[in-house]
């Protein structure tokens, strides 16, 4: 367990999933990269996502060496950095969004920018800006338990979101699930982020096996890009994460169209014909 005794997790993320689950629906979890297509563009995209029915939003803080990401998020990250986005800048985007919307936000990034910022300082600043959770792609559960504990702000109120992969052994999955809060993020396939034609056939069985281990909501991400895929995952899991596909649409057709794309996924997940 990573949480210090008496630590209060966010609760807001779990509540968002619970509300959907109570209606027999899955949560929609879009990924937005701070600073892409621009600072204002990413803020607008957050608002479009909230309007389109996002239940939880992942806000990416761009990093120079995103080694878990495929070409789409790599390119968005590089452009955001070239546009001057920083860790502090991303927290500013979050704070501005938070003033306008209550949708829970998970900050999604790599360890080094957080480490350089100062671990405890970052945790407090993130909480202050309105973050409800933190996900560090290159900090797997158990790799550095002391650091994980330091990432939880003293004031409480933040979840540390953990990842599970198809290669995670059942023994390890139990340990990972045991220390998690908010939700568990299941990576739908071995590989980096990015849109794919097809979902893996074992997904339903794998998510089912995870349910035996935990009561936490399970969101599935990596490679989900179409209405059909979103609908399938919505039947299997508690949440559907959409990242690269959303970036592709906003790059090609603009932020408003990206909002309509999310609304269309939302519809597909709820069985609405599109």
């Amino acid at each position: 367990m990573i949480r210090p005794d008496g630590y209060r997790p966010s609760g807001r993320i779990a509540e968002a999933f619970r509300a959907r689950r109570a209606r027999g629906e899955a949560a929609l979890v879009p990924y937005v990269c701070a600073g892409f297509p621009s600072r204002e563009g990413s803020l607008a995209l957050l608002e479009e996502a909230a309007r389109a029915g996002a239940d939880v939003i992942e806000l990416g803080i761009p990093f120079s060496d995103p080694l878990a990401d495929g070409p789409t998020i790599q390119r968005a990250s590089f452009e955001a950095l070239e546009g001057g986005m920083t860790v502090r800048g991303a927290l500013g985007v979050l704070a501005e969004f938070r003033a306008r919307s209550p949708v829970p936000v998970v900050l999604f990034t790599y360890l080094n920018p957080v480490h350089r910022f100062g671990v405890e300082t970052f945790a407090d600043a993130a909480r202050e800006a309105g973050a409800d959770g933190l996900l560090l792609t290159d900090l797997p559960a158990g790799a550095d338990p002391a650091l994980e504990a330091r990432l939880l702000p003293a004031a409480g109120g933040m979840d540390l979101i953990r990842l599970l992969a198809p290669t995670t052994t059942p023994e390890r999955a139990a340990e990972v699930a045991d220390g998690g809060t908010g939700f568990l993020y299941y990576i739908s396939r071995t590989g980096v982020t990015g849109a794919r034609e097809e979902l893996r056939s074992g997904l339903e069985r794998e998510v089912g096996a995870l349910r035996e281990l935990t009561d936490l909501p399970i969101a599935v991400g990596f490679g989900i890009s179409t209405r059909g895929q979103a609908a399938t995952v919505a039947r299997i899991a508690d949440g559907v994460v959409v990242g690269s596909a959303l970036i592709d649409v906003s790059r090609r057709d603009g932020v408003e169209e990206a909002g309509r794309f999310l609304a269309s996924l939302r519809g597909a997940m709820d069985g609405v014909a599109g």
Binding site: D138, L139, P140, L163, T168, R172, I187, T190
Partner: peptide
């Protein structure tokens, strides 16, 4: 040192 890598690589 340590192993700060994506979860997918832990088993390998």
């Amino acid at each position: 040192g340590g192993r700060y890598v994506p979860e997918t690589l832990i088993r390998a």
